[in-house]
Computed example of a mutant assay.
Amino acid sequence: MVKFLKYQWELFWLALGFFSRIPIPQSTPYSEERMNRSGRYFPLVGLALGAIVYAGYWAFSYVLPIEVAVLLTMILSVLLTGAFHEDGLADMADGIGGGMTVERRLEIMKDSRLGTYGTITLILALFLKWQLLVTLFGSSLISPVLVLLIGYGLSRAVAVTLIYDMKYVTDSAGSKSKPLAQRQTLAEFWCAIAIGVTPLIGIPPVPASIMLVSMMILRVLFQIWLDKRLGGFTGDCLGAVQQVSELTLYIIMLMMIQ
């Protein structure tokens, strides 16, 4: 049992090191197999990031107006993740928006330069997130910590479970996501979901069910869309799905408290 728990803890450290800029112990063992297995803890990384970001908001909101506090909170989030998911959203927007064939779309997505589609998508997404969080945090009907834990945890569960039943279409040997995205077992699929839905325990059953079903539908629609446009997924697509899922959850929360 001790060996099993130690292994799981090491997998979590790998996931934290991959999906964030938070330092992890240098002694953490690494292999492509372990990196692949660590994907189950992507939603747990989201919960950890959500907790840290909430702590930042709590401190900022004591001395600053809510609009400024939320903006600083978003900056903190980007610093913690290295804009990992936002970068994926922008790259996917450039690729799918600017390419007429699957090959061309994948080629554009590998380009480090930011294009028109990616720029517009990123600006609108960040502004929308700021506006949604300002409104949600200003409401007394839902706690900011729950908003962030649900948004950060469940959105990452939606993204990482795409690995289970989709084809990884990036063939670049230097792809950072390649060790993670090769395969996912059914047990890891359900582990990620179980972690991602945990924050929903903190809200009433009906809103929780609405958000859960909405994420299931969103996942199916994204899978169909990505299969049609790319023939599968890339690491950028996972980042994009995370961002879109997070924004969708905030929109649903806002609709339910109006």
Rank of each mutant, 00 (worst) to 15 (best):
V63T: 08
G99C: 08
V53F: 05
A83F: 12
L106T: 00
R37Q: 13
L71K: 03
S27H: 01
I22P: 07
G95L: 13
S20G: 08
E67R: 08
G98I: 05
S61G: 02
R105F: 02
L72S: 08
R105Q: 06
P29K: 01
A90R: 12
S27P: 04
G88S: 14
S38D: 12
Y54R: 10
P29M: 00
L80Q: 05
F42T: 00
K110E: 06
R105A: 09
M35Y: 05
V45N: 00
S27K: 06
L49T: 01
Y57A: 02
T101S: 15
E86I: 03
G95K: 07
W58K: 06
L114A: 14
A48F: 15
L114D: 02
L89D: 10
T28L: 10
L79D: 05
R37V: 10
G98Y: 12
G98V: 08
G46W: 03
A90C: 12
L106W: 01
Y30F: 15
R21E: 09
F42C: 06
G39E: 09
I24P: 09
G82S: 07
E67S: 13
R21W: 02
G99W: 02
E67C: 03
I52L: 15
M74W: 07
I75M: 11
E103M: 02
L114V: 15
V70Y: 03
V68M: 02
M74I: 15
P43K: 04
E33V: 10
D94T: 12
N36L: 14
R40H: 10
L76W: 01
R34Q: 04
A93K: 09
L79V: 11
E86G: 13
I108N: 09
D87K: 07
I108W: 02
I52H: 05
A55W: 14
G98E: 06
A59I: 15
P23T: 12
I22K: 12
R105E: 01
L47Q: 10
E32R: 13
H85W: 03
H85C: 08
V53W: 03
S31K: 11
L79K: 14
G97R: 14
R104I: 01
G50F: 05
F19M: 11
E107D: 10
S61L: 04
R113F: 15
F19D: 07
H85Y: 09
L64Y: 01
L64T: 00
S38F: 09
L71Q: 01
V45E: 03
R21K: 15
P29S: 00
N36R: 15
P29T: 02
D94W: 10
F60P: 00
M100C: 08
V63G: 00
D94I: 11
P65T: 04
Y57W: 13
M100W: 09
A69N: 00
A69D: 00
D87I: 06
T101R: 10
L44W: 02
I24Q: 08
A51P: 01
G50A: 08
L89Y: 09
K110I: 01
S112L: 06
I108H: 06
A55G: 15
M74H: 03
